[in-house]
Design a protein around this nucleic acid. Structure first.
Lengths: 331, 331
DNA sequence: ACTTTTTGATAAAACCTTTTATCTCCTATA
DNA sequence: TATAGGAGATAAAAGGTTTTATCAAAAAGT
């Protein structure tokens, strides 16, 4: 009689076993409509015994809410993306929402493919993340009927974006060095065509004043090395502190300084950026650095997309989340 | 008349616009049933013009195939997981299948939560990945009615698992060193309670013979450092090559050797493991290392889960995928 | 000319829920 | 006592698609 073991239990099975109609079962389980407390408990108990779980596809089809959101990212090996994704997921799972991960490899064709698939699945919203805050999102993203959040990326004017507060991050780095009594602070950072690099450099300049010097280069350890070579092969005053644009650069800087017999932090204090622990904890001395709190950024993005998908209105614009200073040995 | 702009186009809209029934439209679009070539083209053209895309929820509800699979992983910041996920995704997207990413943080409660959500969404299969090949999967995973693939993790006896071939990886590392004429090869690796570490160590011992020596420790740069300190503070013959269990260890080893004025690869050749480019490319000299081809492993896992979800049978057991040697400067 | 096939199209059922509108029965009110 | 109102339950519709069974018309066979 029971159409038992060949598939999942449906609400039919629950209703039949409880001796009520399907609608009553549904109402009892969801607390909607009017139901007698007694039958409600009974239905719930039986559903539990049967291990009933509602089919999300059917539910989504009817309610127009799939309780799934898509995350579109342009990188694959991302040390930036993954912490954010973890943060997003952490928030979503508590609200019964699942996450589709779509890596586009910076390929527009792939981006379109993924985006179409997400729309076909009726996702309630999309989070777009990137490896740099000034990367253009795929154009299709701009005219969707579902909400979109930009995390570590910049959307159009009326959209909601979350960025780390690069300027504030740079400021607390420089202020920390100044509080240590350093006055000849150098800034060695990555490529100038990265907006984040320019923002940080500007913030640095404001605090460092006329004695400040910014060296743009690459986001690599090697650049840290050769930057130091450059500085120390020239004549003129030497820095007593260096603020680096990334932990990798900082590591190159520290290695190069040590090669020259310069002791850290006594002779030169060094501050990094990223708090990428696999680097920052392994340098000698361990790196004092700025953490962008990417997981928290993911949390915020997750909460935002949840809100939007429920129809709430959000202030458009770029919200900048504060960075945090991690003091270790290098400064 | 057209219920135009407030929602997506449905197959109804297509049928109406083409002047045919819903069933005909469906048959025409899917190439099922019997349809006149002419009407078929017409329907397709109109569907295209209208930008019709079928609702995946409705389709999945009926066909019992959601064209989505779930990836359950125990880590968050995974440099192991993410390349695999990228590989999986790359395969799936070409088959119109999407990927749910679920990070469990090693929390059983979270694992259960995610797993239930995946089942509610009627995923066609699940890929379980972990940060180490000998991690126990959550017990709920063992008795599902849907197919499960274990990637970089080990399932029960009758399941399908994919691992990197650690033994072969260790062999090509040692053989490469031996081909360079090195005979006193040392193996510095990570924690002994990792199965992968033991497998590699065993393979190493077979080739290195009685002169071989294995030093277990931690998976950190620091351990590479202190291992070298230990070796060189003892008397006795010194190695002319070192095979390291990870790139991070190798980096610590190289730094420590350089501190002692030992030149690489002339005096001591060093081979790493992982080919984690952010480390291997940045050491000086750049690291010769073993790549586990994690993306390829993801490809294989993706293909496997696709096959299983279509009802194909797969040989159970652990399939070991070959590693590859990347020769750079250190050996 | 009549039956049998074949072709092309369609109505309707099914998938599993939620929700709206109805319906019955009971209690309270005038 | 008649009526209004409320509580509790349910039938039925809806959501968008695929698929099975049915049907009509045209083509082929005798």
């Amino acid at each position: 009689m029971n159409d038992s073991e060949h598939g999942r239990r449906t609400i039919r099975d629950v209703a039949k076993a409880a001796g009520v109609s399907i609608s009553t079962a549904s109402n009892a389980l969801n607390g909607t409509g009017r139901t007698n407390a007694e039958t409600r408990e009974k239905v719930k108990r039986i559903a539990d015994e049967l291990g009933f779980r509602p089919n999300a596809l059917a539910r989504g089809l009817l309610t127009k809410r799939s309780h799934a959101i898509g995350m579109l990212t342009n990188d694959t090996y991302g040390r930036l993306t993954l912490p954010m994704a973890a943060g997003v997921s952490e928030i979503l799972v508590d609200h019964g929402v699942s996450l589709f991960l779509c890596a586009t490899n910076n390929d527009p064709r792939l981006a379109k493919l993924h985006l179409d698939a997400l729309l076909d699945r009726q996702v309630d919203g999309i989070i777009f993340t990137a490896t740099r805050i000034d990367l253009e999102p795929p154009p299709e993203l701009l005219k969707l009927r579902i909400p979109v959040i930009y995390a570590f990326a910049q959307g159009p004017a009326d959209s909601v974006s979350f960025h780390p507060d690069d300027a504030q991050g740079a400021r607390i780095a420089v202020q920390h060095l100044q509080a240590l009594g350093r006055s000849r602070i150098l800034h060695i950072t990555g490529e100038q065509n990265y907006l984040a690099a320019r923002i940080r450099a500007d913030a640095y300049r404001e605090l460092a004043g006329p004695s400040g010097r910014v060296m743009f280069g690459e986001w690599s350890e090697e650049w840290g090395h050769s930057a130091i070579d450059e500085v120390y092969s020239q004549s003129g005053p030497k820095p007593d502190a260096i603020f680096c644009g990334s932990d990798e650069i900082a590591r190159g800087v520290i290695d190069a300084l040590r090669d020259r017999g310069i002791s850290i932090p006594e002779d030169v204090a060094v501050v990094g950026f990223d708090n990428w622990e696999v680097v920052s904890k392994q340098t000698r001395p361990p790196l004092t650095t700025i953490d962008m709190e990417l997981k928290e950024l993911g949390h915020r993005a997750g909460l935002a997309i949840l809100g939007l998908s429920r129809g709430e209105k959000l202030e458009p614009g770029i919200e900048r989340l504060p960075c945090r200073l991690f003091v270790r040995g290098s400064a």
